[in-house]
Write a protein that binds this DNA or RNA. Sequence first.
RNA 1: GGGGGAGUGUCCCGAGCGGCAAAGGGGGCGGACUGUAAAUCCGCUGGCUGACGCCUUCGUAGGUUCGAGUCCUACCUCCCCCA
Length: 420
Amino acid sequence: MSTYKSDFLHTLASRGFIHQVSEPEALDTLARSSAITGYIGFDCTAASLHVGSLLPIMMLYWMQETGHRPIALMGGGTTRVGDPSGKDESRQLLTDAAITANLGGFRAVFAKFLKFADAGGNAVMANNADWLNTLNYIDFLRDIGRHFSVNRMLAFDSVKLRLDRQQELSFLEFNYMVLQAYDFVELYRRYGCILQMGGSDQWGNIISGIDLGRRLDNAQLFALTAPLITTSSGAKMGKTAAGAVWLNADLVSPYDYWQYWRNTEDADVGRFLKLFTVLPLGEIERLAALKGAEINEAKKILATEATALVHGRAAAEQAAATARTTFEEGTVSKGLPTVRVPRQTLEGGITVADAAILAGFCNSKGEVRRAIANNSIAVNDSRVTSFELTLDEKDLTTEGVIKLSFGRKRHVLLKPAYEE
RNA sequence: GGGGGAGUGUCCCGAGCGGCAAAGGGGGCGGACUGUAAAUCCGCUGGCUGACGCCUUCGUAGGUUCGAGUCCUACCUCCCCCA
């Protein structure tokens, strides 16, 4: 399956994580004979990590799992600059306060995948703000800047793309790759880190770091990139009707997260099981081979396993149970997302339109109107045909809730709120 | 510096003789069919209104006109050619 002899590279390769590796033989040999240290950098542009970050996180997970030391590098410093790779326009700059706040949300997520010192493991969480924020400009130019050829930098895709399209590329962004390269060297010096991993769009930036390490410290550093993951039908990972699929439970509930994976396309099941669960490959092979409706079993396992990694086994099982009662038994499950409606409002009667907006299904009454015309909205599993329909306490089921549905997959329980 | 062209429905691309809430795609959402899949077909894809209708939208600001995405002026941004 793979020609790698080290546990680390063999695992990554056979699970589909590897796109490109610099000097694969040398790295393989090294990883076989000793514990190596490697890192991946993460942006702090959002308040939570999302499904797109999952792939790199899993690489760090396997790194630790196969006996090495992973470093999750928070881009507290580089996020202040903004990576131009793969973007047409410069990203909006975030305030330092926002970056710090975002960082806070990350640690808990990483702790679910990696064992840091407080959990008795060797994983490291670093923040490049620690060394970037205090850099002295002139010193930095003389020590680091001299090793960078502008001629070469102009040839990098991330830069060239912008220039070719006559898109603005500020000097600030132009420096991003220099800083990222410097990060690599800094981590090498601090932790003996010799490997940087990342998405395939990071290749150029990583190579810059390798070059810098060789020039400054005569170090042999390595690059490993992962393929860009899309669904079989070509869509980018991690988007749903409601937006990005975040890893924080307060942004995307375990139930919704489970649903996201449950709705994986047939053709992706095997690949995703390998990438996003830690099930043994033999088991995955068996699941991916299921045909027709049977592959739904594999999807449920994918959903439960993937959810368990992020939200814990109990939450995953609960999401699975909720899905089972909702979709397979067709009954009202208490595990569905609930929306509280003040009791007075309910007594006075609330229109379906307002309820649908409250539930987050629609943004305007016009949308609700169209949705009803399209047969999309149901109350307690019966189709709503009239825009005039008003809901009140008589519509409460024996469980004391009103089940409001949008389409066949999105359900919400309206629950009278007695407090406040 | 001179000449020519372009900016359209706040997701993207893109048509648009002065009557336009504005063609057509893509994407998205929903329905049918299925297996909570894919493919396919159908519907929807500015806001308010029960409805007549009203309001807001075509780079920005003015102007002409009963009426402007469309014509005129200035400005901004981008592309191409000449220098």
